[in-house]
Computed example of a mutant assay.
Amino acid sequence: MNSLGTAILVFANSAKQDLANKHIPKGEHLFDVLTQTTLKKAKKTGLPVFHFSDEDQVGVSFGERFTNAIASVFDRGFSNIITIGNDTPHLKTQHLKHTAQQLAMGNTVIGPSIDGGFYLLGLQKSNFEVAEFQNFPWQRFSLYHQISLWLQKESSELIKLPVLQDLDNEGDLQSLLSFSTGLSISLLLLIIGLLKINRSLYNVKQNFSSLFPNSFLYNKGSPTVSFI
């Protein structure tokens, strides 16, 4: 079978399942928006995009379901895969394009998340082993460290992207408000609504006069989400 190049795997549950798994009450609409936004960013790359929701996943544990999804895309004939979730709002199309370029050069790519995991993984088919992947400490703080060590041994070079914030609970939503650069106004308003924050109550490190200058949300400081 001829190689089909690079594909993007969006491994993201349905909004209903995300609501059951994550500690963000009344967040179903947020999860749906995050998934649709992520898919849109992925499709802008021009690469083939495969979305594995909970209805498509096979396996008992998270590690099994995730590994089987990756294997399924590789089995379609692709030589490289970029896998992402739906819970990293600062992820940009540029991250995906840059990853595709690095994969074409024979490198492996990882995007670390603040919680010790990763929000993006760019894999060569030659770097992927089902048994090895299933045994990684999935959904634990040590995941990034252990998978990075393994990839450094398996690949010619491991490229690391900027550290980004992912969303697992209400505390993560609060953190995003301190790093609002690059997020859409509609998403920020949705987050603010979920946290029941308004102009008179929100005064942690900034107030709404700085968050809404001239009626537009903006935050000048966010060094961890910049991308060149």
Rank of each mutant, 00 (worst) to 15 (best):
174 Q>R: 07
155 S>C: 15
148 S>Q: 00
155 S>N: 09
151 L>H: 03
175 S>K: 04
191 I>N: 06
171 G>W: 04
189 L>A: 13
182 G>Y: 00
185 I>V: 15
145 H>F: 08
184 S>V: 11
153 K>L: 09
188 L>E: 01
167 L>Y: 01
166 D>S: 12
139 Q>A: 11
142 S>Q: 05
179 F>V: 15
173 L>Q: 02
183 L>D: 05
145 H>R: 08
181 T>M: 07
169 N>M: 03
146 Q>Y: 01
191 I>D: 01
154 E>I: 07
196 K>C: 15
190 L>G: 14
187 L>K: 07
172 D>Q: 04
177 L>R: 08
189 L>R: 09
153 K>Q: 11
156 S>N: 07
177 L>W: 01
185 I>C: 12
164 L>R: 00
156 S>M: 06
197 I>K: 04
191 I>S: 10
165 Q>L: 13
168 D>T: 10
175 S>N: 09
201 L>K: 03
200 S>D: 02
202 Y>M: 13
146 Q>W: 01
156 S>F: 07
153 K>V: 14
188 L>S: 08
139 Q>S: 11
156 S>K: 07
142 S>A: 11
184 S>N: 09
172 D>M: 06
186 S>R: 04
149 L>K: 04
154 E>M: 03
143 L>C: 08
170 E>F: 10
154 E>Y: 00
149 L>W: 00
193 G>N: 10
139 Q>F: 02
167 L>K: 00
178 S>K: 14
177 L>Q: 06
167 L>H: 01
139 Q>E: 05
141 F>R: 05
176 L>V: 06
171 G>E: 03
182 G>T: 02
140 R>M: 06
164 L>M: 09
176 L>I: 06
199 R>G: 13
170 E>I: 11
189 L>M: 12
150 W>H: 10
187 L>D: 06
197 I>L: 12
183 L>E: 06
177 L>V: 14
141 F>I: 12
140 R>V: 08
191 I>A: 10
154 E>A: 11
193 G>Y: 05
161 L>F: 05
171 G>L: 08
165 Q>W: 02
174 Q>C: 12
168 D>G: 15
151 L>C: 11
189 L>S: 13
190 L>N: 11
195 L>N: 05
153 K>A: 13
147 I>M: 02
170 E>L: 14
179 F>Q: 09
